[in-house]
Each structure stands twice: as C-alpha cells, then as structure tokens.
C-alpha cells in the first residue's frame, strides 16, 4: 500500500485518537502537577434560616471565595506544586512506616493502598477464572449436539449483554437485607446471614459477579478459535493414543494461545478499572478500588468542592498500574509478532 493511501485510511482515526485520548491524557498529566484554588477571604456573615415557626439568625465567620467585580467569576490562582498531589494520594511516609513495622492494618488505612490491594487481587483472581470458565463453556458447547448449540450460546451470552452497573445492582438486591437469595441461604444453612456486613463476603460476591459477567466474552472468542483447530492434527493425535486431556493440553491450548493472550490483555485492562461493583454493592465502607478512588476525588461535595489535582494524580497512577500489568503480555505479543515476520 502506498504511504499516501495508508495515511488517508488511518488519518481520521489517528485524529480522533489524538483528540479524545492523547489530549485528555496530557491535560490530566499536567493537572496532576498543579493546583487551582479560589482566592478566599474571611467575612463575618449573618445568616437567617427558616425554622418551623420563626427564623433563627446566626452570625458566623465564613471563608468565601473572592468574586471578580468585572467578570462576576470567582478569582482563582493556579500553582505548579510538583509531586504534592501524588504525595497526598500515596502518603509514602505513612505507608513506609506501616510497612517497616509490619502493620498491615495501618497500611490498609491509607485509601490508595487499600484500593491497590483490592484492585490487584481482583484482577489477578478473576483472570484465570474468566479464561478457565470461558474455555470450559466453549469446549462444552463445541461438544454439544448441533441442535442444542444455538440455545446454549444464547443463554450463556446473556450475562455479557447486561449493563455492568445494572448487573451488580441486581446481585446486590438479591442478597441485601432479607433479599431472596439470603433468605434461601438462611433457610438452607439454618443461620442468620448478612452478606454486606463484612469485607470478605462482599469481595466474594464481586469476584463471582465479574466472572459471571465476563466469562461469556472469553467463551465467544474461544468458541470461534475452536472452529479453526486443525482436525487432521486432532485425528492423528487420537490415532497416537492421546487422551482427551492430552489433546487439550498439546493441541488445542497451544492453538488457542494467541487468543488467550488477547483475552488476558483485554481483561487486565478492564478489571484493573473495577468500579461498577463498588458502586452497585455500596461497598465503600469495606472495599474500594483505584477507579472508585479517582471518582470519589472528582465528585463534588455539597459545597461544590472537587479535588481535581488528587483525582488527576490518582488517574495517572491507575494508568501506570495498567501499563505495568500489561508489560509481560505485550512483550510476548511483540516477540511473537517479530518471530512471525520472518
């Protein structure tokens, strides 16, 4: 392909990527090193508020932003602060003290480290489960009678179609308080169960939910891959006396390896940004994730304050985390790619 034609083809998507991915990334990167604050002044104000029968008036000293007379907007100052926002998110000194004195609980009291702990655990535990369950479903469907395949594929795809936040809310409602599944469990085990009263049950539900939700995606990809397995190789393996397990181990899995790497890549990127489960399960008392932490910094409180700088820092840290997780897989892909080209 001529270079000019190539540019015409990729140009539009390159432009959109620059506009919607690169530009925001640069702006977040810059925002994580600067803080924009309103200029404030202290004034004494008398506030009269409504009671039921009569007003109550109080005089308080308030800190309020200065408003520019001409533009009518709040006067702000922007300052470059170096690594300050990162320090506020990571709290390196406190974290180091906790690590040095083997104080696990102390480390977990720092939001970032607690979020990192859960996010990494969540990512690494769901990864093999998603690949394993996806492959199992694919093999099962592949071996099922032709007439059954259509319905089975349809049913197993359903979890993937549900919007994540809706899915997690449904699970929450099934289990919270006297939800019907909690009732069922209580009747079965004959004891009182509160699924949302301790961290480990919530984490278990989250892991279960994510695997249930994402396994169909892995299944579809693997199922497509299974259709391309070389039948001659399989048959000769059978003639050589290879068992079902041997065939899976030495023929099918090596054949599917590029797909496994692909799914692992997608899943690592997705699950490191775990967020819907925290919101859906209202889990923030027990468990938080890095993405939730960024969201929490960014959300305005009643007085309209947002912690933009810390949110930016936390977002950059999340991105760095994903890149670190992806490096081994990317190196593998790169090696294969180079190996294949000659």
């Amino acid at each position: 392909m001529k270079f000019k034609t190539f540019i015409w083809f990729v140009g539009p998507s390159l432009f959109l990527m620059l506009l919607f991915i690169a530009a925001p990334l640069v702006s977040v990167f810059l925002d994580s090193f600067r803080i924009t604050q309103p200029v404030v002044q202290t004034v004494e104000t008398e506030t009269c508020s409504a009671g039921f029968l009569q007003q109550t008036c109080t005089t308080t000293i308030n800190t309020v932003p200065v408003i520019d007379e001409e533009t009518g907007r709040v006067v702000t100052t922007t300052e470059w602060v170096g690594w300050l926002s990162y320090e506020r998110v990571l709290e390196p000194r406190r974290a180091w003290d906790a690590i040095r004195s083997f104080d696990y609980n102390g480390l977990m009291q720092i939001d970032f480290w607690a979020a990192l702990r859960f996010t990494v655990m969540f990512t690494l535990v769901t990864l093999p489960l998603v690949i394993g369950v996806g492959l199992a479903i694919a093999l099962a469907v592949n071996n099922a009678a032709k007439s059954l395949r259509g319905p089975i594929i349809f049913v197993s795809l359903l979890p993937f179609i549900i919007t994540p936040v809706i899915g997690s809310l449904s699970i929450y409602w099934l289990f919270v308080g006297d939800g019907i599944l909690t009732r069922g469990l209580e009747a079965w085990l004959d004891r009182d169960i509160a699924m949302f009263a301790q961290a480990w049950t919530i984490e278990l539900l989250m892991l279960f939910y994510r695997v249930w939700h994402v396994a169909p995606f892995a299944f579809v990809i693997f199922y497509a891959g299974l259709q391309t397995v070389n039948q001659d190789t399989l048959e000769s393996a059978i003639i050589d006396g290879a068992s079902r397990w041997d065939r899976l181990r030495y023929v099918i899995i090596p054949h599917l390896m590029p797909l496994i790497v692909f799914i692992a890549l997608i899943h690592l990127m997705d699950s490191y940004r775990v967020f819907d489960e925290i919101v859906g399960f209202r889990a923030q008392a027990y468990v938080i994730s890095l993405q939730w932490l960024t969201f929490d910094f960014l959300a305005a409180d009643d007085a309209g304050n947002r912690a933009f700088s810390r949110a930016s820092a936390s977002a950059m840290l999340t991105m760095i985390g994903i890149v670190i997780l992806l490096i081994p897989l990317l190196r593998r892909t790169w090696r294969d790619h180079k190996g294949g080209s000659h």
């Binding site: 308080t60 800190t63 977990m108 009291q109 409180d301 009643d302 007085a303 304050n305």
Partner: peptide, 26 residues
C-alpha cells in the same frame, strides 16, 4: 441548621469516607 459552608462540605466528605473504618472495627 445544617451549617452551609465550604468547610462543612469538605468535613462531610471526610467524615463519610473515614468513619466507616471505626464501625468495621479496623
């Protein structure tokens, strides 16, 4: 009356985020 100030907004968020650890026993 609920104090309507910038400081209270920040304080409310801080309380909401940090107090849970006391009730979970951490």
């Amino acid at each position: 009356s609920y104090p309507s100030t910038t400081q209270m907004g920040l304080m409310h968020t801080a309380l909401g985020n940090e107090l849970a650890a006391f009730f979970t026993g951490d």
